[in-house]
Design a protein around this nucleic acid. Structure first.
Lengths: 229, 229
DNA sequence: TGAATAGTGTCTTTCAGACAATATGCC
DNA sequence: GGCATATTGTCTGAAAGACACTATTCA
């Protein structure tokens, strides 16, 4: 085997090496369910199959920028919480050639989601996480990993706020936790806990036009330390 | 901009795309200190500078396999705990060309470390984590990220065992925690906590030839669920 | 006044942290 | 017996979990 370290210094372009892509898990909550955006593939391989949105990393953009670009181009979403998940690099994960994929996950609330008009509705669709179809490539593995990270990180970070509008009620917030963790929580204990965390800021406003008692609206303290994970 | 998705299908080889490398943080404990292995670069760029061991991912090996190969070739270590850390992909992180690096960290105990005879001692050296020299590329950032992950993961996983021999005393184990977290811990509270975790298995054996009271030897329960993170 | 959701407190259990004396093997 | 390290339990405060009733708005 030639020494690639020297080779790359001599003539970079002639050396065969893997492609690099980003794949995106875009989570959102709608109709009280946790959903993920999938796209129907328009080209081979797996033409007509469902897959995660994604694309190749260009030479002059960072992988973070590539994922933001794909998020905008393929999902029509901007300015949302985005975090690198894991890098998948089995040699045959793409039948065309060697493609290493850096997976990201993003969290969008329904407000951000309204920006999605530019996406072709025929090719992109939200699926409830419990009901996703067969996925192309190794995207099922990426999905499984992402769900695990999301659930895990929920309990020791503030990512839940990425799925909510700027102002929300404590019930809204609790529902995010319940939907993601897939279990009911006690209202009093939840409120006690979330208040002690110290991330909430009362806005002084209330919900309006409800057919019942109005609820206080809160927002999320910005510039807050996010726990590591 | 041409459509790369089509381009890759037509003629893969002609499309310029990033290189992919792995970089390794090999942690070990020696002389009661947490140390990391650095190598002195023998080629440009940064020739003569210190850097993390690593190398390019080959076309037919997974990134996990690439990191295992580099761990063996550059560090002389095999069969140790190895975990993917994060992927670094700023466009100019390597002055030669676009290189995206998947960082891994490995934990080796002193037994595994004895296998390191094949490594050229002139070019690889252990540095205490508080005293590392200036690092080439963006390796300082990778190091910072790795230390953070290591410290964080220590408290909710069983990775400490990767730094210990198969059989160890509770004092050995406590020292690993103290060295990594950089703080003294109370012996009684530590033992209470670690016993409740349920990962320890008494071997029935004791340390020998100590100039004091012998200690019980424990081993780590295999096939144990590792917490997610 | 009925429907629907908001909002609130106590008790119990569990876990983390502070703290010191006795036990054992070797010389 | 002296040295060096191993081993062990109690108390206290904080946080998590179980559990049910009152308050408010609108129709």
């Amino acid at each position: 085997m030639v020494n690639m370290e020297n080779q790359i210094t001599d003539d970079i372009r002639e050396y065969e090496h893997p492609f690099v892509a980003v794949d995106l898990l875009l989570f959102t909550i709608s109709e009280g369910k946790l959903k993920v955006l999938l796209v129907k593939r328009g080209v081979e391989p797996f033409k007509g199959g469902w897959a995660l949105p994604g694309g190749f990393v260009r030479m002059n953009e960072s992988i973070d920028d590539a994922s933001k670009r794909e998020l905008k181009e393929e999902c029509g979403v901007e300015g949302v919480y985005l975090e690198q998940l894991y890098t998948f690099g089995e040699p045959n994960r793409d039948p065309r050639t060697r493609v290493i994929s850096v997976a990201y996950y993003a969290l969008a609330n329904s407000e951000k989601w309204n920006l999605r008009a530019e996406t072709d509705a025929e090719e992109a669709k939200l699926f409830e996480v419990g009901e996703i179809p067969h996925l192309s490539f190794d995207h099922q593995e990426i999905f499984d990993y992402g769900i695990k990270r999301l659930r895990s990180k929920l309990s020791y970070s503030n990512i839940a706020f990425g799925l909510l509008p700027d102002e929300f009620t404590l019930t809204n917030l609790q529902q995010v936790y319940e939907v993601i963790l897939g279990k009911k929580m006690d209202k009093r204990n939840f409120r006690k806990w979330i208040s002690n965390i110290g991330l909430l800021l009362p806005t002084g406003k209330m919900t309006k036009n409800t057919a019942h008692r109005p609820a206080k609206l809160y927002k999320f303290k910005k510039n807050q330390v996010v726990f590591f994970g």
